[in-house]
Amino acid sequence: MSTIFILADFVNEKATKTTFELATAAARVGDVAAVVLAPIGQGVARAATLNTSPIASIIIVENSDFQNHGVRACADAIAQLISQKSPVALLVASHAFGKELAANVAVKTNSGIITDAVDVDSNLTATQVIFGGSATVHSKVSQGISIITLRPNCITPDLTPSSATIENIALTISDSAKKATVKSSQAPVKGGRPELTEANIVVSGGRGTNGDFAAVEAFADSLGAAVGASRAATDAGWYPHSHQVGQTGKTVSPQLYVACGISGAIQHRAGMQTSKAIIVINKDAEAPIFELADFGVIGDLFAVLPAATEGVKSRKS
């Protein structure tokens, strides 16, 4: 069987759900080797969190250059591992770091790259959704190894317990991959809510909140959801920019997206149109966002949301 690399993705030293989605997609193609790039002394602990989904082997590379020199140093390590192990493909998560790593590896290995795939089949044919959700494209890499970045939350992870073999590999990062130096890093401020791109449910607020996100947050919390925002809301400073959904914000594909006081501009749709189910609350019956709604309520979000929050709480108790 052929080998396929996935780059294990960690938040707070724990493998993310996206990592297991990558493994599940990769296992359709061949034996999954999960690559763990870690600071010195942290590889084994990180690898220990890769205990589910179809991972055949784990390759641990520990090197301080990863923190000190960022994306390029990580890409240098992956390119070296690719020449050692000759995998047929590399799958990474579609976030800023994952895409830039993939871009660097593509150039270094002269391989084709497909970004923002929502699915990958056993032939390494990738599915992408383009033009703000209006078209589906299937494509395949035709040169080098297949480098594919996969959007979080698009395939159901197989969470069967696994016991992978572990291999430690020491690598020297090339000087040319160390030309940029990371002086300091500050993790994003974490609330108690799930990460936007990984959440099963996202509740978003727009200009219609008029700056008061309390009702949106309360409903999100009743569902264990992440909170998103339109650009009108982030530009006004009502909600952090990191929560913006859309063309210049994040792309989300949750099981359920709830748009509250959002009109549905094309740039907003681009970030949420592939959500499985969409609920809309808007007081303007003509708002274009209703075109996407599986369930739409024409009404005031300040009346509808608190009632819905109570309803969810009473059903859960």
Binding site: G112, A135, V137, H138, K140, A303, A307, T309
Partner: peptide, 30 residues
């Protein structure tokens, strides 16, 4: 370096349910 195999327009989303809040909108949503 890569080839498009095919592309299709996605079918528009099937029309959903649309209600006007008469005080029970939140409950119907739940």
């Amino acid at each position: 370096w890569s080839q498009v195999i095919d592309s299709q327009l996605r079918p528009p989303r099937a029309a959903g349910i649309k209600i006007t809040d008469d005080g029970t909108g939140g409950a119907q949503l739940v």
